[in-house]
Design a protein around this nucleic acid. Structure first.
Ligand SMILES: [Zn+2]
Ligand SMILES: [Zn+2]
Ligand SMILES: [Zn+2]
Ligand SMILES: [Zn+2]
Lengths: 146, 146
DNA sequence: CTCCTTAATGGGATTGATTCGCATTTGCAT
DNA sequence: ATGCAAATGCGAATCAATCCCATTAAGGAG
């Protein structure tokens, strides 16, 4: 099954119209390794020759977050929200504080820790986010050379 | 050593002037169990009879984050940034998605996982944030009763 | 395929948080 | 006490995000 068809099904399942803009947005997000901002999305689409307005980008992001197809990340690119498509595996991120590169990591070591907390606080955890900040290989090297 | 004196020392160490506004801001943040927004801080201070402007609040928050005395949290209260004072132990949070209650947790299960990633990606991790989302005890109970 | 209903969109105006510019005040070193 | 740079206040400016409303288009019925 093609990617487009998969998106159609997702949208239909959620009772959302299968518009070309939503298709394009999902394609760009699927292709992107890193979380993207609304503006990046907008510019990327325009570069691809797609005419779309910012309102539409924001509205599509909202509804897709609401329907659990994409996620708003909890770290921001100075006060600008970032979004990523939900993949099968959940992810954590290594965020380089210098060059802003974001490396996704799929291992998650938190299950036991989480159940201990659930018990202790009577809290049901439905999701979690872990971000790690520091210096990537390249930025480490650059500062060595100084 | 009194709290005020402790703040003076912190500020002096960072070459920041020991102003009464910075003192007040740090006091409020120290007293607050949960992360606070700039506006909450502003209103709390005014309630205490302290005259201060929003610019000053924002500027103080900026410089204190920069000097590592407080931290900007990675979750927002709809597009409003939240800040908390750095305590001796670092913290994670259980955030109730329903009532917005935030429970701080001081245990951190992170270290081995972190070193494995550092090695694999050549990334130096300097800090990390973990937030868990779900339903607190009270909100769990409320939905049982439905 | 055509018609119809209603969701989706464009684009401009608006909101709301955060930042900036500049005149004034205050901390603090001497 | 004096002088100067840092900090502050207040209003203006900025910038992401949201809202409004007129127009377009998805997709179900026939
Ligand atoms: Zn880097
Ligand atoms: Zn995880
Ligand atoms: Zn709750
Ligand atoms: Zn930790």
């Amino acid at each position: 099954m093609g990617v487009k068809n998969r998106y159609s099904k997702m949208l239909k399942r959620e009772n959302l119209r299968n518009t070309s803009h939503r298709q394009s947005i999902l394609e760009v997000m699927e292709a992107s390794k890193e979380p993207v901002s609304a503006e990046t999305l907008y510019l990327t689409l325009r570069d691809k020759g797609i005419s779309i307005s910012m309102s539409t980008v924001y509205r599509a992001l909202d509804v897709l977050v609401e329907r659990n197809i994409i996620a708003k990340t909890d770290f921001t690119d100075n006060n600008r929200s970032l979004f990523e498509i939900k993949r099968e595996e959940h992810r954590h991120h290594l965020v380089c504080v210098k060059c802003k590169k974001i490396i996704p990591v799929t291992e998650c070591p938190f299950h036991e820790y989480a159940s201990a907390l659930e018990e202790r606080f009577g809290f049901s955890i439905t999701s979690h986010k872990l971000e790690m900040f520091g210096y990537c290989r390249k930025c480490n090297k650059d500062s060595d050379e100084k």
